[in-house]
Design a protein around this nucleic acid. Structure first.
Length: 554
RNA sequence: GGGCGAUUAGCUCAGUGGAUAGAGCACAGGCCUCCGGAGCCUGGUGUCGAGGGUUCAAAUCCCUCAUCGCCCUCCA
């Protein structure tokens, strides 16, 4: 609808210009927006005011010239007002709104999808937690954000791949292996002074016990190097398996797990550094190699190879991003914890040094989660191994409530997650409010079926009977869903869906309490049933993007 | 000290160039002979942190300041 109006307007401006009503060199980009109040119609444009300065004329006069040149062949528009400082307000015919329901029926669970992405390949990389322990609540928000962004992009016509980058190289991996080995020795009766910087959780001892059971005490006599060669990958693999399982119960499934170790295979990182060196972005200072990221606006240059000859994490990360491009992705999306924001400029520098456009990489920052229970903060500390795991949260509050609660804020604003509220089945918890709307519609359908009323097809129903303002409002709201999806995909903002769903559920519940869908008048009942079916479709589609179930009964 | 972000109703937050700034929660009162009360209806509050600037128009853009958070590893 918005697109159609924009097209009509552009044409009208051209026409007006041709007829000499407007003097302008070029047509500026005009915007059509949904209005805030009914009195301003359904859509409005600021075109006249935007044109005012270049045309050097009164906005209201310009608006009139535009309106007079509009050619509404399809008969979409009921009335046009020129209001306020020069807004042009469009009132769409009710019959046009009703007609849009046909598309909902026809497309069903695909309603809302667009082809904005035109099949372009997008990779969304998220979670990517080190396999040194189970995922905790902080990872959960990143997991949902990435998952829903991926769902959204897929619905918007992109070919999406979800990826988890496994940081299985570096000090922490060694620390992991050593932690397990220490617990192993402890289990064999040795008195151990367990260092505080080692991984503390119970899962470390469990892994040690597992190794003891399957391999006995044979590692006691081996060199540390040989011990770690077994312990580190054993622990990492076991933990990684747990992470996958936990993500699975949270509804998050990846297409690809990419191991940092693979980047080093065949001298991959070294070759990359060679390439950057040839391009002149690398310089040597004593034994250290530096990447001139300041060429691209970073505040200082960054080390890629340390004094001791080891490449840094950043060096591997450049190789990783290059690898992504080599795999043919048109757009790369990284979902990061907001505490990594200082890392952004150097990664943008890196991809530009590799010859990629800056806007092919999009980095979404996810802010911290404060975990509460009944309004009181829950103490969490990774060091002491006291943290609430993702699995515990899912077990306690359920997948749907957990996911929905993480999506109720912009991802870059801090979020309080209260376990008591999230599991409460009350009006403090919006997920049930939305799901309840869906269950209610299903219930209406069941009742209708029992009374021998079936939902008619679009061409077998007299939608003209839907005359109530509440009904027109509902139709307007559900037919706006494709715009919500497209907008969310364009700016990578999943929270737009929860806000939309809450509004839709609210106007549905209100309607339900005020009017009866099933009445003695069969034709009216059938028309309303059709509307209910369409609302149900939109609720289900939007919830499905969020990875939240749409129950038929609760 | 430098960088980034935040500051909007009692609380938690939407809104990033448009018209009289919104939602949920909390609070108070009401609504079931009726398709599910996990629901609905009614009630009100804002120096949009402060000050300046840009323009037809600023919560939104720019500058200064204040407060808070995060980051400033040859860690990942």
């Amino acid at each position: 609808m918005k697109d159609k109006l924009t097209a009509l307007l552009e044409k009208a401006i051209t026409t007006a210009s041709g007829r000499g009503l407007l003097q302008l060199e070029k047509i500026p980009s005009i915007e059509v927006e949904t209005t805030r109040e009914d009195a301003f119609g359904d859509y409005a444009t600021n075109a006249a005011m935007v044109l005012a300065s270049s045309v050097r004329d009164n906005p209201r006069k310009i608006a009139k010239a535009i309106v007079d040149s509009m050619d509404d062949r399809e008969g979409l528009i009921e009335k046009i007002d020129i209001a306020g400082p020069g807004f042009i307000n469009f009132f769409i015919r009710d019959s046009v709104w009703r007609g849009l329901l046909e598309e909902i029926e026809r497309l069903g669970d695909r309603y809302g999808e667009t082809n904005a992405g035109q099949g372009k390949r997008v990779q969304v990389e998220f979670v990517s937690a080190n396999p040194t322990g189970p995922l905790h609540i902080g990872h959960a928000r990143g997991a949902v954000t990435g998952d829903v962004i991926a769902n959204t992009l897929r619905a918007a016509g992109y070919a999406v791949s979800r990826e988890y980058y496994i940081n299985d190289v570096g000090n922490q991996m060694n620390t992991l292996g050593r932690s397990v080995f220490l617990r192993y020795r402890e289990l064999l009766g040795e008195k151990i002074d367990f260092p505080p910087e080692y991984y503390q959780g119970q899962y470390i001892s469990d892994l040690a016990a597992e190794i003891l059971k399957s391999h006995g005490d044979k590692f006691l006599t081996l060199d540390e190097k040989d011990v770690l060669a077994f312990f580190t990958p054993f622990a990492a693999n076991a933990i990684m398996k747990g992470i996958r399982d936990d993500l699975g119960t949270f509804g998050v499934v990846f297409d690809c797990y990419f191991s940092e170790r693979d980047l080093y295979r065949d001298e991959g990182v070294a070759k990359l550094l060679q390439e950057l060196q040839e391009k002149g972005f690398i310089y040597k200072e004593e034994e250290t190699l530096w990447f001139r990221t300041t060429d691209f606006g970073d505040e200082k240059d960054r080390v890629v190879v340390r004094e001791n000859g080891e490449p840094t994490y950043f060096a591997a990360d450049i190789a990783y991003h290059r690898n992504k491009y080599i795999r043919g992705f048109d757009t790369i999306i990284d979902i990061w914890g907001a505490d990594h924001h200082g890392y952004l400029p150097r990664v943008y520098a890196a991809i530009q040094a590799l010859g990629k456009e800056k806007d092919t990489l999009k980095i979404v920052l996810v802010q911290l989660v404060s975990l509460l229970r009944g309004g009181k903060p829950v103490a969490m500390s990774t060091r002491s191994g006291e943290f609430v795991t993702l699995r515990e949260v899912v077990d306690e509050v359920g997948k749907d409530a957990a996911r929905y609660n993480f999506l109720m804020r912009r991802s870059d604003s801090q979020l309080d997650f209260d376990l008591e509220v999230a599991k409460k089945q009350s009006n403090e918890n919006p997920v049930y409010y939305v799901q309840y709307a869906h269950a209610r519609i299903c219930s209406i359908m069941r009742t209708a079926g029992e009374r021998g009323l079936n939902v008619p097809a679009f061409d077998k129903v007299d939608l003209g009977l839907l005359k109530l303002p509440e009904e027109i409002l509902l139709i307007k709201h559900i037919t706006r869903y494709p715009e919500v999806l497209e907008g969310s995909a364009a700016v990578l903002e999943p929270h737009r869906f929860t806000f939309y769903l809450n509004e839709l559920a609210a106007i549905f519940h209100s309607y339900y309490n005020k009017h009866r869908v099933i009445s003695e008048e069969d034709e009216l009942s059938r028309a309303r049933l059709f509307l209910m079916k369409c609302i149900g479709t939109v609720l289900r589609n939007a919830l499905s993007i969020l990875g939240v179930s749409a129950p038929e009964k609760m």
